[in-house]
Design a protein around this nucleic acid. Structure first.
Lengths: 142, 142
DNA sequence: TCAAGATTGATGCATTTGCATCTATATGTT
DNA sequence: AACATATAGATGCAAATGCATCAATCTTGA
């Protein structure tokens, strides 16, 4: 079994590109005094869940985080006043994460920054066809 | 300025794919009782540098790590006996990272595992043409 | 019904990270 | 030469991570 050059190149470009782009978004967030991408992802999932909120264990597969990281991310967001941990009637072991008004506001502010990055880093760099092709190729790898 | 659906999808697929694949490689390393990918990358760069070794500050752009992380990664690899930190005659502030025999052996063992993953996760999943196309699209994003 | 096992989510502890700063040496300017 | 500034790399400290484990609750099967 031999690894071809194109394999290595695809591999390296995949990870370098992903890391570099994320770094640029994180830098933009920091610049704007905003928390990091994982907070955005979590806030967005929790906001989409609506007033009922969402169970931490349902958040795990969305965020691709381990259980303990999810738990601690929620801790920090509670501390920051962006979400509430609400008791869960249907399962007393669990809880529900519910976004606060302040959380919604934060998510919106983050989106404003995020959006600009996505436009500059992806949309402006690749035509629609290329974006579709890229998505298809990436999906073959998952 | 509006973010189109294909933009979001390319963005998400890029990062999810990268993370997922890396997780699988890391899992394979852990499985085989080997250190993590960043050790591999560092060992490889240092080994390629030959007997002269390489200056930490030259390693930084290769590894895409911040200075302090590079410094501490070298610490740990010294502790593990995989590299030596050699005094640098031409610049007394600095040092040179030189791979040890044990380090070469470790890199080779890691490559055996790594290679298998690359074959299974990339080479078997995408034909050569697709790999080339993917690389090209990713390069447009960097 | 009740014990055995599974699941939810939190947490103690050691390691790693991120940031800022420090020391030491090198370089550039007058 | 003498000083100011820049650069290389290490490090103290606070925060975040990874791992293992815990308590509480739920589910299942006899």
């Amino acid at each position: 079994m031999t690894i071809e050059k194109e394999t290595t190149q695809a591999w390296q470009n995949l990870h370098i590109t992903s890391r570099t782009l994320i770094e640029q978004v994180e830098a933009a967030f920091k610049q704007a005094d905003l928390p990091s991408l994982s907070w955005y992802d979590a806030l967005w999932e929790i906001e989409k869940a609506g007033g009922e909120g969402i169970r931490p264990n349902a958040l795990i597969p969305q965020l691709l985080l381990p259980q303990y990281q999810t738990s601690r991310l929620l801790d920090r967001m509670v501390t920051a006043g962006l979400i509430d941990r609400v008791v869960c009637d249907e399962d007393r072991r669990g809880c529900r994460a519910v976004i606060t008004e302040s959380g919604k506001e934060m998510r919106a502010r983050m989106w404003a920054t995020y959006k600009t990055c996505l436009d500059r880093l992806v949309q402006k760099k690749l035509g629609k066809d290329d974006r579709v092709t890229l998505t298809q190729l990436l999906q073959k790898l998952r």
